[in-house]
Structures are given as structure tokens and as C-alpha cells.
């Protein structure tokens, strides 16, 4: 079993076998992160460029640590302090990065499709670390890995995703991935934050968290992205919190073994109560640890191929 594409641009169209390969490979790298010497020589001499055109803490540092644990050389580069301010085009910039023998370019960009655009023009592998409100495949993979570790499977489980469906790239990647793996996905949020026709992706919709919370094996809370939609879609944050916030009271209706997830960063007290975020059901910090293992697996699978070396 091998991955079909040279790039990981999204989980749309990625097969069940490919996702299983990535999750199984992640299992092996998870072990490396638990050793006292957290480093293997696998990607010695490979160059990985983290190109972040939008702010990021978790994803960027996670990719950086993943590259270091595989002995690859990681270089970080962000919008500020680069030649974007001098008017260089995106394509020129990435062509220059490739001319410096980058093997993998990890890219976050505010415009949906930006990684897809550069991937067409580069021999290097491109990994999408979030493009606008489109996809964030590495987050969905680490979510699925975390779920699988807790529930033992993805097939047949029910995942309730709550919050800002319209502006979330995490949710889109998770829908593609979870549906492919045979999970049932229920989206919950105010109508203004649920896109028209999203049922066509194979999901169910509910406007009330209280109606569906008891069916959930996994409750995935999304961040209200105040920087994206402003406050236009919500009457007030207080009203949102009243209807959708995951509070201890609401959690009483959930199954005793339900798992609570959040891709971070958390708005404490808005979409999730601190008591739940730090409580027994929460696997939020585990998601972060697993993120490193998933990204190690992806760098291994995408950076080590022979075609890359031969083109040089």
C-alpha cells in the first residue's frame, strides 16, 4: 500500500486504505516520541520548509518538532519579515524555496486552494497545513488517530461536531476523513453557521446540541473564529454559549465514555467550559501530542520517496 499523490492537499478523495496507512504509520512514530532519546535518523539530509502565511502555534511547532525528531532540517518562514512585503508573487517565492532543494513544503495560507496552486508547479511534496476555510488535513488525521486510540475504531462510531461549521477548515477535513472511514457525523450549530447543502457531504444536521449529545461517542467542539466572521453570524457570544457551550450540565446527558475534543486554540467559557476542557472526558492535550506523531508519519511518507531524489 502506498499513497497515490505526491502531496497532501486535503482528505477529499483520499481512500480508506491510504488513511489506514497513515494512521498505522503514526502508531510507530508515536512510540518514538515516548523514548528518552526522541530522535531517529530517518530523514537525515532532507529539507522541510514550514511556510506559514497565517499565524499558527500548534501546527507550526508540531511540524517543526516532527522534522527535528526525524533528523530532517526544518526551516521556518512566515509572512512578516519575508519578501512578500516587497511584492514578490507566491509562485516566485515557492520556486525560490524549491531552488534551495526543499523536499517538502508545509504550507498554511489564508486563501483556499493556495497549496493546490503551488503543488502543480513544484516537484517538492506540498502538505497543506490549513488553507482558508477549506481543509486542514493534518488536524483531521490527528483527530482520527486520537479517536482510534480511545475507541479502538472509526467505523460505526458517532461524532458530533459543534460550532462554527461554516468557517472551519478542520471540520471539512474531518467530514471527508470520518465519512470515508465509516463514521456517522452529526453537525451542530446555529443555522447561520451551517452552510446550505452541507448534507450532501453525507452528514446529518442538528440545531440543538441537547437533542443529539446523548448519541455521541465523540464530541468535537470547534472554536468560534472571531477573527473570521466577526460577530455577524451570531446575535451575541452569550447567546451562543447558552445554546452550544459544552458545560458540565450538558455533559451529564452524554455517554459516560464519550470523548471531548477541540482543535485549539480554546475560547474558554464560550464554546467550552473550563471544567470540561480540563476534565476527565477531555483529550485535548493528547490531540496535541498525537499531532507530532501524525506529522512525523506524514513527513516520512512524503519526504522519503525516490522520485524526489532522482529529479535532482
Amino acid at each position: 500500500m502506498q499513497l497515490k499523490s505526491k502531496d497532501l492537499l486535503g482528505l477529499e478523495g483520499v481512500s480508506r486504505e491510504e488513511i489506514n496507512l497513515i494512521l498505522d504509520t503514526t502508531e510507530s512514530f508515536h512510540e518514538v516520541s515516548e523514548r528518552s532519546i526522541k530522535k531517529v535518523p530517518t530523514l537525515r539530509g532532507r529539507t522541510i520548509i514550514n511556510f506559514f502565511h497565517e499565524p499558527s502555534t500548534r501546527t507550526r511547532i508540531s511540524f517543526e518538532i516532527a522534522a527535528k525528531r526525524l533528523s530532517a532540517d526544518g526551516v521556518n518562514f512566515s509572512k512578516s519579515g519575508s519578501s512578500f512585503s516587497k511584492g514578490e508573487t507566491l509562485l516566485d517565492t515557492v520556486k525560490n524555496l524549491e531552488a534551495m532543494q526543499a523536499d517538502v513544503i508545509v504550507m498554511r495560507h489564508g486563501i483556499p486552494g493556495a497549496p493546490h496552486f503551488i503543488a502543480q508547479h513544484l516537484d517538492a511534496a506540498v502538505i497543506n497545513a490549513g488553507d482558508g476555510a477549506h481543509e486542514h488535513p493534518t488536524q483531521a488525521l490527528l483527530d482520527m488517530f486520537t479517536i482510534k486510540r480511545h475507541l479502538g475504531k472509526l467505523d460505526g462510531i458517532t461524532v458530533v461536531i459543534v460550532g462554527d461549521i461554516a468557517f472551519s477548515r478542520v471540520v471539512r477535513s474531518n467530514i471527508y476523513g470520518l465519512i470515508t472511514m465509516g463514521a456517522r457525523v452529526i453537525l451542530v450549530g446555529p443555522p447561520t453557521l451551517i452552510p446550505v447543502d452541507i448534507e450532501k457531504m453525507g452528514v446529518e444536521i442538528s440545531y440543538k446540541l441537547d437533542d443529539v449529545i446523548d448519541q455521541a461517542d465523540v464530541i468535537m467542539i470547534l472554536r468560534i473564529q472571531l477573527e473570521r466572521q466577526g460577530k455577524v453570524c451570531l446575535p451575541s457570544l452569550r447567546e451562543y454559549a447558552k445554546l452550544y457551550s459544552l458545560t458540565p450540565e450538558r455533559m451529564k446527558q452524554a455517554r459516560p465514555n464519550a470523548v471531548v475534543m477541540h482543535p485549539g486554540p480554546i475560547n474558554r467559557g464560550i464554546e467550552i467550559d473550563p471544567k470540561i476542557a480540563d476534565g476527565d472526558h477531555s483529550v485535548i492535550l493528547e490531540q496535541v501530542s498525537n499531532g507530532v506523531a501524525v506529522r512525523m508519519a506524514l513527513l516520512f511518507l512524503f519526504a522519503g520517496r525516490k522520485e524526489l531524489t532522482e529529479k535532482r
Binding site: 500500500m1 518514538v32 530517518t42 526525524l70 508519519a297 516520512f300
Partner: peptide
């Protein structure tokens, strides 16, 4: 697998199995 000296020579990445 992670310590092999021929990773760059393989056309496809080999399967990584468990270390315990």
C-alpha cells in the same frame, strides 16, 4: 525501518512496524 541506509533508494516508503 527508520534506521535503514537505503530509504532514499527505495521507490516507495517501506511499511514502518512497531518497536516495543
Amino acid at each position: 525501518t527508520l534506521y535503514r541506509d537505503d530509504l532514499a533508494l527505495e521507490k516507495n516508503q517501506p511499511i514502518v512496524r512497531k518497536t516495543d
